[in-house]
Structures are given as structure tokens and as C-alpha cells.
Design a protein around this nucleic acid. Structure first.
Length: 269
DNA sequence: CGGCTTTGACCAGCGC
DNA sequence: GCGCTGGTCAAAGCCG
């Protein structure tokens, strides 16, 4: 189904998160973290959604079963064959659309991997308001799921950012949102205030609108150089990972994993 | 009337 | 080669 991974992600407590993958083909969608702690390998399967029997090992990263993130990187082509299949979907990113392939992906040319970032959010609405304007351009039934997947494209001219939204088959209360690409334009002035992520525990106050663009352009899409990725989820990161603090990017990311698993709570407007 | 959603058709990639 | 699946296109329709 879909699989995301990134490597060399610097986690807190001097852990190096070598890989994160999320696969909806698994019995229960889960995030599997393979940590390397100075040579000592720790594997933490972060089960969420419908799993009720065993308590997932969230404690090590401070996570809760209510939220989940996944990254993918556009970098690191050095990783070879055995991971190519997992990266396939990434390679089929937005710039490799039907037309894009015809025009740009001629024989022998390497496909460009578009930054992709996925997360799950507990929400009753599929399309989370994130401050950007999106136009739906497709909807497909998803194999092994009762719920369709919707495809959205940023309506800003020349912006190639896309996102896919689907509801978890295992837990219909969870919405899986996948962003592709990076916004390189200001937030539209006519849109409503972002209200994505029904909310987070640590949300003292919403960010000022003037900060939205900063959030959306500083997302951690590229795990190798800590540059930003695009998407609404950056708001989640921003608020929980101190993007508002003027800190170096590498320090920023080191705060990400534990905070990323903060529990969602009803958001008071 | 412009912007948006819906939806069937089409295409590419992949596995068998 | 064929069928399946994911992703996209584009015409038609809806709505404010």
C-alpha cells in the first residue's frame, strides 16, 4: 500500500532513528521505529488505532496511541535495491504525474522524489483546515478499505503541493493525510484560520497568522538537511517542537519525535 | 459566472 | 501479456 521511510533522523536522547515506516497493509497500521542507540538497536512498534490488547511501547518516545506521524525524504538515493520497493511510491510523487512522466521522465532519467509527509489525526472531518486552499482533483476507492482516498492540489498558481486524505480502515476516526511537496508561497489571505488537528494537548494558544507561512515552509521534509517540508502538519510540529523559538534546525528536529505523539484533544476555537 | 466537487476514463507501474 | 491498482485528467454539474 503505502510506505514511508526516512533515515538518519536524529531523535532525542542521542538516538538515531534509522528508519520509520508505516504500512497500511499491515494488520493494523502502525509506525515502526528502528532506533539505533550507539550501536544498540531498539525496535519500537507503535501500534495505534484499534489495537487494544497490548500496550504499545510509547513510553520511550512519549507517544500516545492517538497520533502518528511519518516522514519520507526526497534524499538519499544511495540506499539500494532492497529498499527500492518501499520508496517506489515516493518516487512516484507529484512531479511524476501522468503528464510529468511523459514530459520529464524520459528513458533513463531518474525520477525526482517529491517530499512527502504523512500523519494520522483523529478527526471527524476528512479535510483539515490548514490555512492553504486546496482543490480536489480526484477520488479513488482504496483496496482493502471501505473509505475512498481523496486527492487535493494547492490552488495557488504554480504551487505543486498535493495532499491525499483518507480515513483509516482500521479506525475510521483516524484521518490519514499525506502531503507532497513544499509550499513556496505565502498563505492565501482569504482563507480561514487553520484549525487542523482537532487539537493538541499542548496548545496554549494558536499561532498568529503571520507565523503560518513560516510553519508551512519549515516543515521537516528533508531529513538529511533538516529543511522544511510542506503541509498543514507543520503546524503540529511548530507548536509542539518549538519552531517559534529561534533555534537551529537540527536542534529543532531533535525535539520532534517525542512531541509528535502528543494526544489530540478537542480544540477550543 | 467563477470556483469547486464529482466521477468515469485513462495511463503507468507492478506482480504474476 | 494481462490484470490490478494508484494517480491524474477533464467534462459535467453544483453552488454561492
Amino acid at each position: 500500500m503505502w510506505d514511508h521511510e526516512f533515515r538518519n533522523f536524529h531523535c532525542p536522547k542521542d538516538l538515531t532513528c534509522s528508519r520509520v515506516s508505516l504500512s497500511a497493509a499491515d494488520p493494523c497500521p502502525y509506525m515502526r521505529l528502528n532506533f539505533t542507540d550507539y550501536g544498540r538497536s531498539l525496535e519500537k512498534a507503535l501500534a495505534f488505532s484499534h489495537s487494544s490488547s497490548s500496550q504499545p511501547p510509547f513510553s520511550s518516545v512519549g507517544a500516545t496511541p492517538n497520533s502518528c506521524i511519518s516522514y519520507s525524504s526526497t534524499q538519499d538515493d544511495s540506499d539500494k535495491s532492497n529498499k527500492e520497493s518501499q520508496l517506489k511510491e515516493l518516487e512516484d510523487g507529484s512531479e511524476n504525474s501522468k503528464t510529468g512522466n511523459k514530459l520529464a521522465n524520459k528513458k533513463g532519467e531518474k525520477k525526482h522524489k517529491e517530499t512527502r509527509f504523512a500523519f494520522m489525526t483523529k478527526s471527524e472531518v476528512d479535510l483539515l483546515e490548514d490555512g492553504y486552499r486546496w482543490r480536489k482533483y480526484g477520488q479513488k476507492a482504496v483496496k482493502n478499505s471501505h473509505y475512498p482516498r481523496s486527492y487535493y492540489r494547492c490552488t495557488t498558481e504554480k504551487c505543486k503541493v498535493k495532499k491525499r486524505v483518507e480515513r483509516s480502515f482500521q479506525d475510521p476516526s483516524m484521518v490519514i493525510t499525506t502531503y507532497e511537496g513544499q509550499h513556496k508561497h505565502p498563505l492565501p489571505t482569504t482563507v480561514k484560520r487553520p484549525m487542523l488537528f482537532p487539537s493538541f494537548t499542548l496548545r496554549p494558544s494558536p499561532p498568529p497568522p503571520s507565523k503560518w507561512h513560516e510553519l508551512f515552509t519549515r516543515m521537516p521534509g528533508d531529513m538529511n538537511n533538516y529543511q522544511a517540508a510542506a503541509g498543514a502538519d507543520s503546524l503540529m510540529f511548530a507548536e509542539n517542537f518549538s519552531i517559534f523559538r529561534q533555534v537551529p534546525d537540527n536542534e529543532l528536529l531533535q525535539d520532534m519525535v517525542p512531541s509528535a505523539f502528543l494526544k489530540h484533544e478537542p480544540y477550543e476555537q
